[in-house]
Design a protein around this nucleic acid. Structure first.
Lengths: 286, 286
DNA sequence: GCGTTCGTGTCAAGGGTTTGTACAATGTGG
DNA sequence: CCACATTGTACAAACCCTTGACACGAACGC
């Protein structure tokens, strides 16, 4: 929970303007301390950023406020391009326009809580980015630009997601040579927000390192991301190594290509949607 | 058990402030010697560090105290070493103890502003991590754990560092096949805090993508990271491609292996320290 | 074309709160 | 003895509150 000054720093909206927006449009209804100080959560910050992004793209304040308040069907009065999901992001990315990229992400993340937007808006937009790259619509560098921006958002959410050192401990990472970590990171965030003490290992973790981490960390579970078909075989290797070193470990696969992996005994295959995946894994623990 | 002076040293919280926190928020209830001296255990130190970390990340003291108090006294691992630079981080990393890793990073980042700590504390600690991995002291997975944590901190600083869309535009990234992006990210943060509109491309950017980004983004400058000796040749390729496509571009190399690269005409070789490097590049712009 | 209204961002005044730090006077421990 | 503790009070800077107003541009009515 942040005071209004911190909220201003994080959203880029001036303090007096935050208060004005609250007074005039009721866009926020922050909690209050006993002495009357406003307290903003991350959700509120996201809304502020979304509102700012819309205004910078030419919306009037009133319309932007209405759009942010009605987090469903955003009206499109006289906007040049209707913000509908990832296409705005793709355009901004293709133009190498960092302000527009941030604005598009503000819009995506600002439409609701992490859980509300990650599976239906953010990750689909990331997938669209990958497809746009594959189609030659955007260059690798542009794709990097946007992926890094999304990654930074998820990183911030990870660090804000819970206090380390509490809850059951779980390893999350990708098998060797696998590098598309956006999904794994999103899953780690979702898991952390459920009170799990996530050890996020990230991309490209060698098989022996998985085993070492599992034994040394005393984790209760390990989740291996299987993003592409090429990750299937390395993920199997990781699973067998983990089984050998830590037979008691709760083992799970997540990601788009995890479906064909259930052969190895007692490995949970998680749903593709990261929020559900996190809930399923959380249920296996304790 | 430590006296209040020792607790102050180990937590980085001033003596008088520890007492103030106890009085105002009841955050600690230290044992007492018969004569009334306060006695703190490792759990208390950890709470102090957690509180300090939250405050440094923008929470108000009262909110931070509430958060720390709300955290149930989950079984806390072992002792927390005296804070002396990267070795604490290495130990925490080797133990796969995420709370201790965060505590060590709280300590590193908490000793001053970004500019004050990045070159003398944070990046040296990252280098020590790499060396510890090379020496076999820690596993790859452990190194990933800590690197990702540092990367998340830097990401947050990047997003907080300035408003996108203002100031001169600069590309920052690594050449093909180069993946150690901590230094480049730190440099990007330093640059952004100087009011530069940084397009952070991240690791492993192909040569043609550099050229595409340079032409499409209308950037004023491009900074290519040269981390290891193996990056030298790819970085040269990037430089020649950029020169060909955008002769007017301000071109610079940064990183530990950038020294031998000044041959190509009019390429600035930046200092190793990222703060100075950012200032030098800033001076070349406009 | 011109005055008026409206929407919007910004600011000041006057007053309370938070928070880190400092000081005095005094006791403890090696 | 001296460094370090103790409690209690005090304080200044920074922060936040509300109310009300003001400036400026865009839209509107005449």
């Amino acid at each position: 929970m942040y005071t209004i000054g911190q909220a201003s720093l994080r959203s880029g909206v001036a303090v007096s303007l935050i208060r004005a927006w609250e007074r005039r449009y009721g866009i926020l209804r922050p909690a209050r301390t006993p002495s009357g100080y406003r307290l903003y959560d991350d959700d509120a910050i996201a809304r502020l950023r979304a509102m700012r992004g819309l205004i910078e793209r030419g919306w009037s304040a009133r319309q932007a406020a209405a759009a942010v308040l009605a987090q469903e069907t955003t009206p499109r009065p006289r906007a040049i391009d209707a913000p509908e999901g990832g296409s705005t992001l793709i355009h901004a990315t293709a133009r190498y326009d960092p302000a527009a990229v941030e604005g598009a992400l503000d819009d995506l993340f600002g439409r609701g809580s992490f859980e509300a937007v990650i599976d239906d808006l953010v990750l689909p937009a990331a997938v669209m980015l990958g497809e746009a790259w594959a189609d030659g619509q955007i260059d690798v560098a542009a794709e990097h630009l946007a992926s890094n921006a999304i990654s930074r958002r998820l990183s911030a959410l990870f660090d804000q997601g819970g206090l380390p050192g509490s809850g059951p401990r779980v390893l999350v990472g990708l098998p060797p040579d696998s590098r598309h970590e956006l999904g794994a990171l999103a899953f780690a965030v979702a898991l952390r927000r459920l009170g799990v003490d996530v050890l996020y290992l990230g991309a490209d973790v060698p098989v022996e390192s998985w085993a070492d981490a599992a034994t040394e960390s005393a984790a209760q579970a390990a989740v291996v991301g299987v993003v592409t078909a090429r990750d299937v075989s390395p993920a199997m290797d990781v699973a067998t190594a983990l089984r050998a070193g830590r037979p008691d470990l709760v083992l799970a696969f997540g990601g788009g290509s995890a479906a064909g992996l259930s052969e190895i005994g007692e490995v949970t295959v998680l749903p593709i949607r990261v929020v559900e995946a996190a809930e399923v894994l959380r249920g296996r623990l304790r």
